[in-house]
Design a protein around this nucleic acid. Sequence first.
DNA 1: TAGTGGTCTAGACCACTCT
DNA 2: GAGTGGTCTAGACCACTAT
Lengths: 255, 255
Amino acid sequence: MGQGTLAAVAEPKYWHLRTVLLRTMDTEFSTGQVLPNERELSARFGVARATLRQALDQLELEGRLVRRRGIGTLVAAPRVGVPVAGPEGGRSGAVHGGPDWKVVDCTTGPASAALARTLNLAEGEQVHTVRRMRVVQGVTVAAESLHVPSAALPHLAVVVDGNDRARGVLRQLERVGVDGESRSVELGVAESAEAALLERPPGTPVLVVTTQYAAAGRLAAVAVSTYRADTCKLTFGESGVAVQVAAEVKAAAVS
Amino acid sequence: MGQGTLAAVAEPKYWHLRTVLLRTMDTEFSTGQVLPNERELSARFGVARATLRQALDQLELEGRLVRRRGIGTLVAAPRVGVPVAGPEGGRSGAVHGGPDWKVVDCTTGPASAALARTLNLAEGEQVHTVRRMRVVQGVTVAAESLHVPSAALPHLAVVVDGNDRARGVLRQLERVGVDGESRSVELGVAESAEAALLERPPGTPVLVVTTQYAAAGRLAAVAVSTYRADTCKLTFGESGVAVQVAAEVKAAAVS
DNA sequence: TAGTGGTCTAGACCACTCT
DNA sequence: GAGTGGTCTAGACCACTAT
């Protein structure tokens, strides 16, 4: 009896389940509430636990629920809007980071083949790498590696180590005058290092933001930022509309 | 014998498998080549097929391979860079679409509660909805719904239907003068309608780009675009760096 | 210790594509 | 018809969190 008797629906069971669960969540549950456990849900819907989990996987990918080992499955809060390019478009304080960036460490070494390629350098040239994380409202939303060729920072004193060096790199980069940014966004999964910073298991879906910083017409630095896809909505705002959006939010709150 | 004898690795089997497969793909396979079938791979690595598939799921999410029913599992080509905000930042021809947007249909009707909220309207107000898809190099990369309140287009003659109306809406929207854009990007899954347009099964991961268009300080339209996450890398370019990037690509091609 | 989600297995059938 | 990936099942054990 390998499989279904109710066939002829053309729609996979897990997809139909997802729809039903979504409706249930919207009508009978609220943010933060725990759903019945997987064994009970699968029994209730008359499917194998694996099939139920496939439906939950979808909803988790959509950011609609959060699963915590040992705890249960919770209805997720709406995603946080995380500004990636500020209203200023990166003109002033491009590499800034504002208050929510925390430096993790800083290393200097020869560029790998892949890194040399993206930085348009010869393999083995010295590159500073600043690893940092972005913490918004107590939650780590992103891990980043910022790569800067030593050659781009002629006035950097490489005497200090660790966080001091990171500060030096960021300050010098600011000083050379970043005058342009180019970004790309794609889907990826967190490898072990980033996963640890993001407090998530390896394989967690992330939005990979690659930012190329230009200074004096040349590529001065590349930042690879991985944002938690479950909790983040990346925003690329312009002030003109931002005002309008704020008005909307207010209106929605009233209604 | 429920599970493993080789335990004590702390790393899930499927994650380790992913790493091994990734290395194998990079060294022994090239773009477009088909991997051994799932039954053979699972036997070769001594795991259940479901476990192997979990590893393949990861690699597919990363855009490293493509699975085709009835055909096999292929090594994917690198993701295509798809410009979302052009160098002009949307100032001229914001809703343009360029040559690669194809109108699917156009409807006019009362706004749902959710839509009214995002458009900052009262529920039930008339809204034009243009559905279109973006085709790059013969591949459909995105499906979009562009919502425009009727009230924002006072000079639109609503006599024609279908594609003619779509053209009218786009032209009128252009005419009222869009003077600002605000975007967000988040992870989602394709529902049945979009999935069909994207030629993918429901549940396919997509990058959801929500664009708010402002005209005269007011929200004039909202576009929800779903880009295939497997094949697309969204780019938000600025001309200054774009030149540099082109140089890079050339350099990489030579090496 | 009890309960939860996470991983893994072995086997089955279905839907699709090619020859 | 043969071969592929897609779906589904029933059951087991593991890792974690609470009490």
